[in-house]
């Protein structure tokens, strides 16, 4: 499982849902991101890159500069 969600930061804007190429994510009844299908995640970081609220992360290292 390489997705980490920090629910307290999520504002339910739906950006991560809209740009996930694998329909991994959805929005819950309480307007927070939720994982619908973790096993489909290809760790492409599209969600992490565009989440304006630093609420979703891939738990794999980023390259050192």
């Amino acid at each position: 499982m390489s997705l980490k969600i920090i629910e307290a930061r999520c504002k339910g804007c739906g950006i991560c849902v809209a740009f996930c190429p694998k329909q991994v994510l959805g929005i819950s009844e309480i307007e927070k991101v939720k994982i619908l299908n973790a096993s489909a995640c290809i760790t492409c970081r599209q969600c992490e890159t565009r989440c304006p609220d630093f609420a979703i992360f891939i738990t794999e290292p980023v390259p050192t500069p």
Binding site: K4, A8, R9, K11, G12, C13, G14, I15, R45, E48, P52, D53, F54, A55, F57, I58, T59, E60, P61, V62, T64
Partner: peptide, 23 residues
């Protein structure tokens, strides 16, 4: 480094969530 740590490194502790509107 992990992306979450990278963000934490450069943000003041305890300042998130920020005040900007959803989206």
């Amino acid at each position: 480094m992990f992306m979450e740590q990278l963000i934490e490194k450069y943000f003041r502790p305890g300042r998130l969530p920020h005040i900007w509107c959803p989206g």
